[in-house]
């Protein structure tokens, strides 16, 4: 017991440091004051009402959703191809190729953003939502592949052979056997990449041009207009709840996938 005390104290402080700001978010979102400071004044839902009436905000949310959904679909689809190739086939240069795809995971976003900006302007493609989607697919793909790889590699290779053996073509075997078994991984990948894209700021701010996404809009509001801060906190509260919900769903599907293929849980993100 004595031995663990230091580490336990450290863990408690660590968790407070990590989550206290997030707890403060809803606290001040319901606080009846424009100044973010203790003591709290009183309970109000005014900031949420204000949120409801901001049309530019709604525009930003809509754009962010379009970008996030498109990014999630593309990154996951490409991820399925890569994970399938990576787990099923042996080919020359497989290691380097897969390593190269995973590179954006460790590459600073700012570098991805700057290089994409330079290239896109150079080839004459304007900035906007398409550019932001491109950037987001680049950074989301490694996450999609990591999730899908574990889904595909936990499959017994002979399941697919058994389907061929029982008369199915490669396509129908994929549809009837592989796809249902990796579906939890696909849903999990869709949700994660959606979440990453939705709150991504750096790449979006470089590439969207005048079409502000939600994070870009929020940042601009915070820096230009301090009176809006409680409204932003209200929005933050909504977003936190939404994110927790999404992550929860993603984790549920990931665990169900592991249970389905009869594998052992090696720990996830929740």
């Amino acid at each position: 017991m004595r031995k663990g005390r230091g580490l336990r104290t450290y863990t408690i402080f660590y968790l407070i440091f990590l989550y206290a700001p997030i707890v403060l978010l809803p606290l001040f979102a319901f606080n009846d004051s424009k100044i973010i400071a203790f003591p709290l004044k009183g309970f109000t839902t005014d900031w949420f009402v204000a949120l409801w009436h901001k049309t530019e905000l709604h525009q930003a949310v809509l754009k962010s959703l379009i970008i996030a959904v498109t990014t999630a679909v593309f990154a996951t689809a490409l991820g399925v191809f890569a994970a399938r190739a990576g787990t099923k086939y042996r080919f020359r240069g497989k290691g380097p190729v897969l390593g190269f795809i995973m590179l954006p995971l460790v590459l600073p976003d700012i570098i991805v953003a700057v290089s994409l900006l330079v290239v896109l302007l150079r080839i004459g493609m304007g900035l906007g939502m398409t550019a932001a989607i491109l950037g987001h697919v680049v950074i989301c793909l490694p996450f999609a592949i990591a999730i899908l790889n574990s889904a595909f590699s936990s499959l017994d290779q002979s399941l697919e052979e058994a389907a061929y053996d029982l008369g199915e073509t490669p396509f129908s075997a994929f549809r009837l056997v592989i796809l249902p078994l990796v579906m939890p991984g696909i849903i999990s990948s869709l949700l994660i990449t959606f979440t990453i894209s939705l709150d991504e700021y750096i790449i979006a701010s470089f590439l969207v041009g005048t079409e502000e996404t939600l994070p870009v809009y929020l940042f601009n509001q915070m820096t230009k207009n301090s009176r809006e801060i409680p409204v932003v906190l209200a929005l933050g509260t909504v977003l936190v709840l939404f994110s927790i919900l999404l992550l929860g769903i993603a984790e549920y599907f990931r665990r169900r996938g592991i249970a389905r293929t009869g594998g052992k849980d090696t720990g996830g993100f929740l």
Binding site: D156, S158, L159, E161, A162, D165, L166, V177, L181, T261
Partner: peptide, 20 residues
Amino acid sequence: VPANHRPTNMVFQSYAIFPH
């Protein structure tokens, strides 16, 4: 002639029972 068109069927070492 691919496996799905041969008059053979196989019992796999891992049984390959479809878990879903």
